[in-house]
Design a protein around this nucleic acid. Structure first.
Lengths: 246, 246
DNA sequence: CCGACAGTAATTGCATGCAAAATTATCCCA
DNA sequence: TGGGATAATTTTGCATGCAATTACTGTCGG
């Protein structure tokens, strides 16, 4: 392990994301320290890190509380992500993809196609699909060669359900779920095509629309998403509220 | 003071930004603790916060080092900021500005006009101009009503020279400097006009261009900027390198 | 003269302890 | 019985201390 702090921070992050503490409720230092088996000092460090993540809110002399997110905030975050990825796609198109990266992205899409053929009944296929989705999106970012984009995207993807890992495998209405995934894949194909043809504006518009639809789907699927046990579980879904305060 | 930690963090942030520690050099806990007159624990907390800011880099078991930025990274960050503000402008236009906010933005531009008339010989005028610039930009963001934008912009503006406070009053070539400021002001007028007329795409394009030019100006003025004592001082300029490693 | 090694100093990682602030409980009095 | 002041408890804020890791320096062998 790099250092204990990193480990502890990650543990606490997962605890919070899986809803171990009620959103809005106080997170006591001693409780966390005992649960994680470390000292209060280390706990405090980890909580400070999670405050920067936006998962915890600190109130002076009153400690930390779990933050909750509204569906609107999630949608806003997705829109921001779309805009950042649109910049990435545009710059990738303008500057041109390195041949190796282009090949890699093509391979990702080819494998995604294969996975989709097999369907999503298997957990392994769903996991693989998620990984491929993430790989594609970060590949675009890499292609932009913009050094400020990765941290900016990391930051925005910390709001629950906003990142490319947050894919909803809707099993209550399977056909609809599959159709959405297929549509997303088709988007990817078009986006890569635009980038390879150096069509910056087209790529940007496509990826913006891609993000927009993703946000709409998440909003539409939200109820099913919280009720049914979808798997792999979406981290942070426990922190999202339909609407309301803070 | 809210708590000592916030104070200490801000003090250390200013120290780092003004170049008190050589970029790339180690920042020792004890040295900082003594300089700030607090314990190592508190110092460590503050340094962790500055790591999240991106100002310090942590290496396990080796402590923190001051990060340095290249001009390219600054330019990338400005491009990202431009894209985020373009989203803000577009959404503000689409959703419509609240009348009070519209009036406020008009007032800001009117006062900026008045300040420009007086010229920038006075420090107070330069400071005021910076404040008005910031107010205009955050007004657009407020008008977007996008809850994910403020934190995203805060984050990107932490890279030195990337934020709207980082205005270069070029005094080596005064006429050129004034011309740039005037051009920026004209941009603002056009942007507000586009938003008020609900021209989302136009507003977005204008603000994108606005950011792009801002980045170009900073690059062009960089040498003058580091050599001459411009005032108000630009925080973090000491951390920017023309090019190179890390 | 150069490189490996050992011992020492310096520095970070983490836990514990004490003081201050906030929260909760208790008691007194109207 | 209810309201408010006050005392007790809990909880956070911060400092100090010890262990572990890393960096330094001088020495020895080749």
């Amino acid at each position: 392990m790099a250092t204990q702090l990193d480990q502890i921070t990650q543990n606490l992050r997962e605890l919070v994301l899986e809803g171990a503490y009620e959103p809005g409720a106080a997170v006591r230092e001693v409780a966390v320290a005992e649960k994680l088996g470390v000292s209060r000092t280390l706990t405090r460090l980890a909580m400070a890190a999670l405050e920067q993540d936006g998962l915890l809110l600190r109130e002076p002399n009153r400690g930390f509380r779990v933050r909750s997110f509204t569906l609107d905030e999630v949608a806003d975050a997705i829109e921001v992500r779309g805009e950042l990825e649109a910049l990435a796609a545009r710059q990738a198109a303008e500057r041109g993809l390195a041949p190796a990266l282009a090949a890699q992205l093509r391979a990702i899409l080819a494998e995604a196609e294969a996975v989709a053929q097999e369907g999503f009944k298997e957990l392994s296929n769903r996991s693989r699909w998620i990984d491929l989705n993430c790989a594609f999106h970060s590949g675009i970012v890499e292609g932009s060669a913009n050094k400020a984009l990765p941290p900016a995207l990391d930051h925005i993807c910390r709001v629950p359900l906003a990142g490319p890992r947050a894919i909803v495998f809707n099993r209550t209405v399977p056909d609809q779920g599959i159709a959405q995934l297929q549509a997303a894949h088709d988007d990817h194909v078009q986006i890569l095509d635009a980038i390879l043809n150096r069509q910056g504006q087209r790529a940007a518009a496509l990826i913006r629309e891609h993000a927009y639809r993703s946000g709409r789907n998440k909003r539409a699927n939200f109820d099913a998403l919280q009720q049914t046990a979808v798997w792999p579980a979406l981290p942070g879904v426990a922190l999202v509220r339909r609407a309301g305060n803070e």
